[in-house]
Design a protein around this nucleic acid. Structure first.
Length: 475
RNA sequence: GCCCCCAUCGUCUAGUGGCCUAGGACGUCACCCUUUCAAGGUGAAGAUCGCGGGUUCGAAUCCCGCUGGGGGUACCA
């Protein structure tokens, strides 16, 4: 058996945890769990200009919320500069890398010129020709330089676990920069140095890195290490097929959290974007997924983010959350803390089948807590005819006589009243529902009244009755 | 421009040469249940497997071309 794999998730703190990143993290996590490996968290913060340190905590929190715990780290690349400098020195002394003294301006000009010709700019490799002694002397004299890798003069084959085999011809890649003139390592370099140092065996990341992979392969070899296995994941697109962004509603983990989604649902949904365990399995816990996960079953193509399906899945999960837990979870979404837990606990079982998210649950719960501020216009139009006012009052009188006030008893009274009045039960129930909730949609009415109690019911019903009664003769 | 990748119902996908009259899920529609709305149950519509050529007795599955989409081509990550 192969040694236990070591994988890493390496976000850069230039934004919050995007769902694309969350899915990458998840696949790494799942892979590590599946094979008893190690999941490492590494913060790629070498771009001093674009980093936002405060985002690191946000990313860690999102990871935790999603249930992805890491075994090692978080390591920060900004704290590992010595490592990169040493590696660069070594490459330099081994002749696998060299100093180049062109200024950014010179390079930019050369790039412009090449583009004007309709050609791809590639660094000339001029620095390769500078004798070692001269290079050392110029560096010692303080002349700014970058360190570039000598790319091998042979094609590089990347045998990707999910994207398949890709061959990159020799000569299309130039001698790219490892260390900037200010001494900061560049992404490609710090990544490979760290991957070697951390003993990474499998690199699972987005396809946007596939084209960079030959650089990494060359770098691993220069560093004297066997390149890891690569698995490049297809992009996650918005419903319109464009790159997913806030424009599509939500793109960051904490935005989904704010929308009232459950982490287990989001994680399950994300896992299915590109991976399938086969046998038509869809709903799975993280443990189940971890048991079934394999890189071979990841598809190569990009996928669109379908909010509808996520919502459905979330609704499924929501039904299984114990009511007491739900009572806690829903509180940040606007259910007044003043609502007695007893009411909440009786309302939740009736309300939750009607909710797909915690936000919807909180909305549904609101009418158990507060009298309706207003009545639905369509409802008023349909059931607000003055003749209903006496019906409502009679209804109140009838249920006042029901003792104890059980939903079965209330239903019995309601049915009797409807029969007497010669109307369908719905014609009585709907006005009452409008009075209690302000809307025409709610959980079963009689159970609601049982929980709400006579006082609240009376107050709300009288309010509506007063509203629909004929004006006291304007004349 | 150059290099690389991708392409099955509207969406996520199963499918790795015969089991495919292409399966499941979301969504949609219908019916059932029903005091409303959901949930739930049952069922239906929906994919000439992007297009065109090959290979093969046989292709969604292999090969080539095309088209469309995406990525890379930075002293960004």
């Amino acid at each position: 058996m192969n040694p236990a794999p070591r994988v890493r998730f390496a976000p850069s703190p230039t934004g919050s945890l995007h769902v694309g990143g969350a899915r990458t993290a998840l696949y790494n996590w799942l892979f590590a769990r599946r094979h008893g490996g190690t999941f490492i968290l590494r913060i790629e913060d070498t771009d001093v200009d674009r980093n936002k340190p405060e985002l690191v905590d946000q990313i860690l929190e999102a990871m935790t919320w999603l249930g992805m715990t890491w075994d090692e780290g978080p390591f920060r690349q900004s704290e590992r500069y010595d490592l990169y400098r040493q590696a660069a020195e070594r490459l330099l002394s081994e002749g696998k890398a060299y100093r180049a003294f062109e200024t950014p301006e010179e390079l930019e000009a050369a790039r412009k010129a090449a583009e004007a010709q309709g050609e791809t700019f590639r660094y000339s490799g001029a620095g390769r020709e500078i004798p070692k002694a001269e290079s050392d002397r110029r560096a010692a004299s303080g002349e700014p330089f970058v360190i570039r890798l000598k790319m091998p003069d042979e094609p590089i084959v990347v045998d990707d676990v999910v994207q398949g085999r890709a061959e990159f011809p020799a000569g299309v890649l130039d001698d790219f920069i490892l260390m900037r003139s200010d001494g900061h390592p560049l992404y490609h370099f710090s990544v490979c140095v760290d991957d070697v140092a951390m003993g990474i065996t499998h690199v699972i990341r987005g396809v946007d890195h596939l084209a960079n992979t030959p650089k990494h392969v060359a770098l691993f070899r220069a560093l004297g290490a066997e390149p890891p296995r690569f698995a490049h994941l297809g992009m996650i697109l918005g419903p319109d097929g464009k790159k997913l962004s806030k424009r599509h509603g939500a793109a960051g983990a904490e935005e989904f959290r704010a929308q009232g989604l459950l982490p287990e649902a989001l994680v399950n949904f994300l896992a299915l974007l590109g991976w399938s365990p086969g046998e038509d399995r869809e709903r799975m816990t993280m443990d189940e997924m971890a048991a079934l996960f394999s890189l071979e079953r990841i598809g190569p193509s990009p996928s669109r983010f379908d909010h509808e399906k996520l919502a459905w899945l979330n609704g499924q999960y929501l039904q299984d959350v114990p009511d007491a837990r739900l009572a806690e979870l829903v509180k940040p979404f606007g259910v007044p803390g003043s609502c007695p837990d007893e009411t909440l606990l009786r309302a939740i079982p009736l309300q939750k089948p009607r909710a797909k998210t915690l936000v919807e649950l909180a909305q549904g719960l609101s009418s158990w807590v507060a009298d309706p501020a207003d009545w639905d216009a369509a409802g008023l139009k349909k059931f607000g005819k003055p003749a209903n006012a006496p019906l409502l009052r009679t209804f109140l009188a009838r249920i006042a006589a029901v003792s104890p006030l059980t939903h079965a008893g209330i239903e019995e009274a309601a049915r009797a009243l409807a029969a007497e009045a010669g109307v369908k039960l719905g014609d009585l129930a709907q006005p009452v529902r409008l009075a209690l909730t302000g809307t025409l949609a709610s959980p079963p009415l009689f159970e609601m009244i049982e929980v709400l109690g006579l006082e609240t019911t009376r107050r709300r019903v009288l309010a509506l009755a007063a509203r629909i009664e004929p004006e006291p003769t304007p004349s």
